[in-house]
Design a protein around this nucleic acid. Structure first.
Lengths: 215, 215
DNA sequence: ACCTGAACACCGTTCAAGT
DNA sequence: ACCTGAACACCGTTCAAGT
């Protein structure tokens, strides 16, 4: 039911999703969707929830962390990154939809994952306030990085057009922006994978510092 | 012309903005807006551009950085944060709208600011690739932090409803999530200002490390 | 040069009616 | 219990016509 919506957004894009069109791809005649879901907004919320829960099916991310916390956070971060890259059209929705409670932060989002995150850290030497600080830093890092990575090649892909690396450079329009022009090549090459790794390691180091002392 | 749209989104919210309603608030009869702007998407792009350019009018952020780069980046970051907090309804749009070129990253977004950023760092000891790395790290940090900070109290505010600190906690529904419940109080208190400062300082330290060696 | 009115194709959603 | 058809209020956008 909701799987069809995910598939639809994945290859037609969010703005193309329409109750009538979605119903059409399901063979069903139109607005009998309202028997299964209570409106468009509700449908989108369900889509977000369902995509986030793909984490549960990810063998690389186990819910109960018996290894150390750094390893657990690394696997969790990579699991979320995989989701973002699998659904570049949906991820901004995960980031943007207002959460039920103000402290439920994207992209972790579900109480199951937040509970796992918090209890894992707390059981491994983090005090309460250190755990909360780690949660906030972790979500903030993931959101910023993944949103930008996904936007790099995800968002502007329309139904028919495709883009190549280094494409869309308005080199002629860069008069007056000499530095931008000089660095255009490096700016447009996608190094997101390495950035993700090094930023993640930096964050883990920062959390380790938080754990053993200062805040 | 576009100022009206900004004001409208600021206090009615993005989904409420409609060509017809906007026209109505302008006293004009309806779709003569199309003489001034070429469509709704174009209008939103103009709104984003205009809001970002509020930076230029910010006396705390000077375009030509004669002080050192850390100070410049600090002021720039705070300037963008001020914009985000001034327009909580619009900021997600700044973050989400697909940029013209893939390396134009939110929330910096305009070529003027990207140029200023890059040339400032490059003139103060950063190599080309270090400058680019700094640009990516800086935008990623800002986007993640500000989007979450704004979402905390910005997004779900409807026209009539207001929320208070610690509101909306479904404390009864937290059976099975003991850690979440134990930390609920701390999770829901807004410490974004301090987090912003310490994350920013951490980032500046990281950029300093990048500058002198390792990248 | 700017605004208007009517029209077009399309939305999300409701609801009585069918099976 | 599920689907349908028609209808309602509302969209964004176009365009000939007014001033």
């Amino acid at each position: 039911v909701v799987r069809a919506a995910i598939a639809y957004i994945d290859d037609r894009g969010l703005p193309e999703l329409t109750m009538r069109r979605l119903a059409a791809t399901l063979g069903v005649e139109a607005m009998s969707l309202y028997k299964h879901v209570s409106g468009r907004d509700n449908l989108l919320d369900t889509v977000v929830e369902s995509v986030v829960d793909e984490l549960s099916g990810d063998p690389q991310v186990q819910l109960e962390p018996e290894s150390d916390w750094q390893d657990y956070l690394r696997r969790l971060a990579h699991g979320l990154r995989r989701i973002a890259l699998d659904h570049p059209q949906i991820f901004p929705l995960i980031a943007t939809r207002p959460p039920a409670a103000p402290w439920i932060r994207p992209p972790l989002r579900s109480l199951n994952w937040i509970e796992a995150f918090l209890s894992s850290l707390r059981s491994q030497g983090f005090t309460d306030s250190q755990t909360v600080a780690a949660y906030k830093a972790f979500t903030s890092f993931l959101l910023g990085h993944l949103l930008l990575e996904v936007a790099h090649y995800g968002a502007p892909i329309g139904p028919e057009e495709t883009r190549r690396e280094g494409d869309g450079l308005p080199l002629g329009d860069l008069k007056g922006y000499p530095t931008v022009r000089a660095l255009a090549q490096q700016l447009s090459t996608n190094t997101a994978a390495q950035e993700f790794e090094s930023s993640l390691e930096n964050l883990l180091g920062r959390l380790a510092a938080i754990r053993s002392g200062k805040p």
